[in-house]
Design a protein around this nucleic acid. Sequence first.
DNA 1: GTGAATCGCTACTATGCCGTAGCGTTCTTG
DNA 2: CAAGAACGCTACGGCATAGTAGCGATTCAC
Lengths: 184, 184
Amino acid sequence: MLDTTAELVAEVGVERTTIDEIASRSGVAKTTIYRHFPSKQVLVVEAVHACTHIPAVTDTGSLRDDLISCFSGMTKASYEGRLGDMMLSLMDAAQRDPELGRLVRAQAEQRRRFATTVIERSVERGELPDDVDVDLLVTMLSGPLVYTKLVRRQRVTEELVAAVVDSVLACYRAPVAPESAANA
Amino acid sequence: MLDTTAELVAEVGVERTTIDEIASRSGVAKTTIYRHFPSKQVLVVEAVHACTHIPAVTDTGSLRDDLISCFSGMTKASYEGRLGDMMLSLMDAAQRDPELGRLVRAQAEQRRRFATTVIERSVERGELPDDVDVDLLVTMLSGPLVYTKLVRRQRVTEELVAAVVDSVLACYRAPVAPESAANA
DNA sequence: GTGAATCGCTACTATGCCGTAGCGTTCTTG
DNA sequence: CAAGAACGCTACGGCATAGTAGCGATTCAC
């Protein structure tokens, strides 16, 4: 039932998803749906919740490996499969529906926190300078992946994740500080 | 009339935009709207077209300046104002509506081509190595901006554009090649 | 001025969807 | 096996919306 809802949202979006269609597809009577969920809004929120699972955070001691593992996990969990197909419509609906808004924002926050944790751990190890802009770094890492998924509508491959991580990390490993290089 | 349509799409999204509401807001009778546009779909496409304007490409001779100018222009043209507010809903609707799909894809392509041009010009000048992955570079630049706009729902400031450009360019100016640094 | 095109207004059809009522059936539980 | 809970089905009421018809008023061009 929640599964069918998610399937429909992925196919036609939140707005075009109707209770009647959920009922006929899942082989459940419409009245039964209303016996469990007071409204379509709640049903959608529950359906999203149901297909959300949080990837584990690894700690290999290497920033590069941790980041790749972290973003690969996120990709599998959020950008692939049903949740990936629902994403755009969910984000759009979240602009108007406060409940969905909270849900989507919470998920984005959580994904950000994972990456932030990995980076801060690396700073403590001395792998990155103390004054590194963690917020910018997370944006530089997440951005290209989201962009590839939502705007280019291409699969986020392991190779892309590695390329993005390496590209972002490259300047922090070089002897020249980014600030001075930027003004060259 | 097209203006009111764009305004409504920005406010409530493509799906929730109704002809009646457009009529009453623009002070135009519904019948008059149908005398100009055969359907809501066409009206929305025209409205999007109407508020799309292409920023000029600069050629200062400096990759950094050109990129900042390029992405600042794109930001103003696409991420701010009405088009920025319409973006998510348009992208979602574009998944199902072939006409909108073409439109959105064309705009994304065009934005990409701007950046690609700037970068290729820089490669010809010898500022960047010949074997640079232009495609990845454009993704690394566009991604964080789109991510900031769509996912974080924050304004894309001039400072952010500069920070992203500098961050991406940093590794290409450093003496150590990114590949060897990544494996360090 | 006069004819033609355009516009505004009200009303209308048709459709789709939300959410509910009522009733008979099935399944569970003790 | 018996009682109660859960389910399926059909049929609603109510609302919103896409598009259309018809007619009178307005504007515009010549």
